[in-house]
Design a protein around this nucleic acid. Structure first.
Length: 780
DNA sequence: GAGTTTGAAACT
DNA sequence: CAGTTTCAAACTC
């Protein structure tokens, strides 16, 4: 496996390019025979998914032992050099302010680690990233949990330097070989290890200082050098690449004194640096508001590609804040992005602690790109799916995380999905490690659509909405019914399944159907740290449609009777949608029948692997290139009726069509006539619409102009400009006219006519004055 | 709204 | 792959 894509390599500094030491995939570096001799990641519970990533356990331990005033700022450009492993690297960020509180970045192992104990993660796996904020005291090393500094046999270690506030060199907690009694397994002794020092923050002036647990830094450095220590200066990149794995520039600023930490996550989509490092694009900062009593649990792990690192800064909720969100301006155009976030509110530290022993079924809320975009992280013990919505992103991501309580494939002591690390008396840090199933960018969404948050069951199952939104694919981890994900309907997303479901596939227009119920609340039940549970909001992108477009997009309800809406006869099913507000009978195109639905999808894909792909291919330039993928087979309609799929799609038949008597070609007079009529009809409709719109606008404008008068103290009547004064003046004029008629002894009829004429003149003056002034005057 | 027509999907 | 059947949408009245 290529650790670093060629496109990416050209963009990387030379020191970063030296990635052999951190290559953890099945292609181990030559200089690390010990690592090669270790168990391969692929041996660990291979996940039967296309996007399976061999989860190589990497442990990044960040021990923020710095003084309270010390700020730890780390900027990590997570390109392929940092996580250049085929395995998914899961980083568990545990910001801690208390001394000797380890911040553990832990990669996802192939097996799900549900263990809540902070340290049992002695994975034979090969890669550890140990991020140690400078331990102010050696006690920190000694107090560090074994799991955080576990040196796996033959495993490679990443030495990540943290930049101290005072500009001091980054002290990397270099795990002394064999220093970890719990994790030891004698790995370092027998095998030469590779240490790669990652200077975080891109500060070139900083020199990483390797500090061993029991040795001086200098000697440790020498030791490291002897062990083929490699220092990687990860500099912020302003250069962008057109292609390549996602890069995240992570800037983590921890102000222990201020009890706040900020993490700026910059991502590079297809090698494009979007944020912090880019001078053009302002970095999006994830504010980590952390109180002393609060704790944050972050599990971050790039999925498929080790070179892809997703860093999520978790903002510890201020007390009494039931919900935590992580702003993640990620534009995940690549697979393998994994974000695991577990948070605990500050108000419930006890629950956090209890979460160590109890299976956590939290629903994680990750705000991506803004507060309105959130990701549902139903982290059940059985399975979890993490949906990542990225505003502006054309992709919709759902990471599947399977959490198994028993990790048969896990490493020693890895029978847990959650590794909790107490960062302090009141600061338990729960490190969640889970097996990453897959992460698929599915929807080329241009905009997001809100999904009404729906309460989760205790097991994290998504409750059906009032609109009966369901999963298109059962999460049943049955390989035989797993569809070819590449052939799923566009916009299909993976969603958490219920029970032991591993994943589920959502229809492409799942969001569209949910537009009326804009939020889905996923409320975790027990085991979650928040007293009220964490509600999760998910915004699912539309299938390339904006919210307005989707809202306006008519969705015809189906009328299926016999197909159970599980065959392509059903347009809803064919389009990857759930039936909603349909007239169908015996509908199985819903969540209640996700198993049947999955089988149906499987059957359809078996018959036609491209069954769910759009039939009308998009033309590169204009609509002329649009053509039906299979062509029509019309015989009687002349391809000029909507029976014809080509005509329905407003495209002309092509050579792929097998139609008889086709009249749907360029020069067809019938077609031209129809098109002309259609255009004329459309023009009429547009004109009518425009006229209505204009009228409405005028009426609205009239309201707008007259509304102030209504509310004014002048008593002006709406729409008439007849104020009280005008009315009185008019009456006076009429009375005066009547008096004159009486004076000249005119007959009654004449008098009435005179009065009416005067009234007419008054009206004319009123109208005339209304167009000139807001306060017309009446002069008799 | 009921009945007919039509062609894609499903089936053999 | 071809022929037939099934199905639901499109269409007509």
């Amino acid at each position: 496996m290529d650790v670093v894509s060629p496109e990416l390599n050209i963009l990387l500094p030379d020191e970063i390019m030296d990635t052999e030491a951190i290559v953890m995939d099945d292609d181990p570096p030559a200089e690390s025979p010990a690592a090669s001799g270790q168990s391969q990641p692929s041996d660990d519970a291979p996940i039967p998914m296309e996007t399976d990533v061999i989860a190589v356990p990497e442990i990044v331990s960040l021990c923020s032992d710095a003084p309270p005033t010390q700020a730890l700022t780390t900027s990590i450009t997570t390109d392929s050099t940092l996580c250049s492993t085929t395995s998914s690297t899961q980083l568990l960020l545990t910001p801690s302010i208390a001394s000797s509180s380890p911040l553990t970045l832990r990669p996802a192992t192939a097996s799900i680690l549900t263990s809540t104990t902070p340290k049992t993660t002695t994975s034979p796996a090969n890669h550890q990233i140990i991020l140690n904020n400078m331990a102010s005291s050696p006690a920190a090393d000694t107090t560090r949990s074994p799991g955080t500094t576990t040196i796996t046999p033959g495993g490679q270690k990443f030495m990540v330097t943290a930049i101290g506030k005072s500009g001091q060199s980054i002290v990397l907690q270099l795990p002394h070989t064999g220093s970890k009694p719990g994790s030891g397994q004698g790995e370092a002794k027998a095998h030469p290890q590779h240490f790669k020092v990652l200077t975080i923050g891109g500060m070139t002036d900083l020199k990483p200082v390797m500090v061993g647990p029991a040795v001086s830094s200098a000697s440790q450095v020498s030791t490291l050098q002897a062990q083929q220590l490699k220092t990687v200066q990860i500099a912020k990149k302003t250069q962008v690449s057109s292609a390549g794995p996602i890069k995240f520039i992570i800037t983590k600023a921890v102000n222990n004194k201020g009890l706040t930490a900020q993490t700026s996550v910059s991502n590079v989509i297809t090698g494009r640096v979007l944020s912090t490092s880019s001078p053009v694009t302002p970095p999006r900062t994830i504010t980590l508001s952390e109180t002393l009593s609060s704790s944050s649990k972050i599990a971050i792990s790039p999925l498929k590609s080790p070179s892809k690192m997703t860093v999520v800064s978790v903002a510890s909720q201020v007390p009494n804040s039931p919900q935590k969100s992580v702003s993640l301006p990620l534009n995940m155009a690549h697979l393998g992005q994994q974000i695991l976030v577990q948070q605990s509110t500050a108000t419930s530290p006890a629950k956090v602690v209890s979460s160590h022993s109890t299976p956590m079924k939290p629903v994680q809320t990750v705000t991506v790109g803004g507060p309105q975009f959130k990701t549902i992280f139903p982290l059940s013990t059985s399975s979890s799916v993490q949906q990542i919505q990225v505003p502006g992103s054309r992709f919709h991501y759902v990471r599947l995380v399977t959490a198994t309580t028993g990790s048969s494939t896990g490493q020693a002591g890895s029978h847990c999905t959650n590794s909790s690390i107490l960062l302090g008396p009141n600061r338990p840090m729960v490190v969640n490690t889970a097996q990453v199933r897959m992460s698929v960018p599915i929807i080329p969404a241009q905009t997001m659509k809100q999904v009404v948050p729906k309460p989760l069951t205790s097991s994290g199952q998504v409750l059906t909405t009032q609109t009966q939104q369901r999963l298109i694919m059962p999460a049943t981890p049955l390989p035989q019914i797993q569809p070819n994900l590449t052939n799923l309907p566009p916009g299909t997303v993976l969603a958490p399944g219920s029970g032991n479901m591993g994943y589920a596939v959502l229809p492409a227009h799942y969001v569209t159907q949910l537009q009326q119920s804009a939020y889905v609340t996923l409320a975790s039940s027990s085991g979650f740290s928040t007293p009220t549970g964490i509600q999760t909001q998910a915004r699912l992108p539309l299938n390339g449609l904006s919210t307005a477009d989707a809202a306006s997009r008519p969705r015809k309800p189906c009328n299926c009777n016999k197909s159970q809406c599980l065959k392509l006869y059903c347009d809803c099913f064919a389009n990857g949608e759930f039936c909603q507000s349909c007239n169908c009978t015996n509908c199985f195109n819903n969540l209640e029948h996700e198993t049947e639905r999955a089988k149906a999808i499987k059957a359809c894909l078996d018959r036609n692997p491209e069954a769910f792909k759009p039939k009308i291919g998009k033309g590169k330039e204009g609509e002329s290139d649009r053509r039906h993928s299979k062509g029509c087979n019309c015989k009687r309609s002349g391809c000029l009726k909507n029976y014809c799929e080509c005509y329905e799609a407003k495209i002309m038949c092509s050579s792929t069509c097998k139609c008889v008597g086709c009249k749907n070609f360029e020069e067809s007079p019938e077609r031209k006539t129809l098109m002309h009529l259609a255009d004329a009809a459309e023009v009429r409709v547009q004109q009518q619409t425009a006229a209505k719109t204009k009228l409405s606008s005028q009426i609205s404008d009239l309201f707008t102009r007259t509304t102030p008068a209504i509310t004014s103290g002048g008593g002006r009547m709406p729409f008439t400009f007849v104020t009280k004064e005008v009315a009185e003046a008019t009456c006076e004029c009429l009375l005066e006219q009547a008096e004159q008629a009486e004076l000249i002894q005119q007959p009654q009829a004449t008098a009435e006519r005179m009065i009416l004429e005067e009234f007419g003149r008054c009206l004319m003056r009123i109208i005339s004055s209304a167009g000139k002034t807001d306060c017309p005057s009446i002069n008799c």
